[in-house]
């Protein structure tokens, strides 16, 4: 009993140390926006090994669906392995590029009911979720003054092509508030040109803030601490503001166990990435070769 207590205390201390060293950041799948500057400084003096290690762990932003659901009741190493093999097989057949919530995509699928048997949709990615073969993303556009959203499965074999027209991130992890914002923020022409970033550059974060329409809204946006909304305060009543204050959970960022339960441990992540990294890297380099052949077009200004 005493031993057990001692062990648990020791474990707790080591865990606390880890988190104090900000290594918990490595585990989270959330994008790190404020830490770019720090990282650049760190990268320069660090050795070769640490770079490769980091770049392996970096893939969790580019390929988030390769990490399984952290719920321990649903995990099984063999199932996850088979799932990853199937995902790589599918990735060998179709180019699934790097994209984020906020990027503008053009997706072509084969559709038996369409006249030309194919269907193309252009829109902004407002949500990306799911693990493994269940991964999906949602595109939103406004067509003929009518908002349209289409959800695609990332590994659906009917997807012929996924093209990233504008690669960028936004201030928030989900852009579901575009449903309640003015239509010009989610309107994209179907004949939009692809904007190509210079090679080696980081994915830009678009700091644009959208203008919301008055209530009624789909969700209570004021409670979600969103950075991408410009004018939310003007629609809030006194009661809304009081409720927002009551609903805040500022202690949650200190809840280490909650963070731990939401993420895959670093040891598991390393195992997964070392398993798939070489194949993913090969696929990526092959895709780069293909993309070089395409015609270069000059990038347009943001939100022209």
């Amino acid at each position: 009993m005493v031993l057990a207590v001692r062990k648990s205390v020791e474990w707790g201390i080591t865990a606390a140390k880890l988190f104090v060293r900000r290594e918990c950041r490595i585990l989270s799948t959330l994008p790190e926006k404020q830490e770019y500057a720090e990282k650049q400084i760190e990268r320069a003096p660090s050795g070769r090994k640490s770079i490769t290690k980091k770049s392996i762990l970096e893939s969790r932003h580019i390929y988030p669906e390769f990490l399984p659901d952290p719920n321990p009741n649903w995990r099984n190493s063999l199932r996850e392995k088979l799932e990853r093999e199937d995902m790589l097989k599918r990735r060998g057949q179709v180019e699934i590029p790097e994209f984020y919530v906020g990027s503008v995509l053009a997706v072509t699928i084969s559709d038996p009911h369409a006249q030309s048997k194919t269907n193309k949709f252009v829109g902004i990615c407002i949500e990306r979720k799911g693990c493994g073969l269940r991964a999906d993303f949602t595109l939103r556009n406004v067509v003929d003054h009518q908002g349209v959203e289409v959800r695609y499965d990332l590994y659906d074999p009917t997807i012929q092509k996924i093209q990233v027209l504008r690669l960028e991130k936004r201030l928030d992890d989900k852009l579901l508030y575009l449903r309640d914002s003015l239509p010009e923020y989610s309107t994209f022409p179907f004949d939009m040109d692809q904007e190509i970033l210079p090679e080696g550059s980081e994915v830009p974060v678009n700091p644009i803030q959208v203008v919301l329409k008055p209530k009624p809204w789909v969700e209570r946006w004021e409670r979600q601490e969103l950075k991408g909304i410009a004018n939310i305060e003007e629609y809030l009543t006194e009661k809304n503001k009081i409720k927002r204050e009551l609903r805040k959970t500022p202690w949650e960022k200190y809840d280490l166990m909650k963070q731990y339960r939401k993420t895959i441990p670093i040891e598991d992540q390393k195992e997964i990435w070392t398993e798939v990294y070489t194949q993913l890297h090969q696929l990526q380099s092959a895709q780069k070769k293909m993309s070089r052949k395409r015609v270069f077009t000059s990038p347009k200004s943001l939100l022209a």
Partner: peptide, 10 residues
Amino acid sequence: RFENPTLSFE
């Protein structure tokens, strides 16, 4: 099969 080419209904 996942290793087969993309489905088309032409």
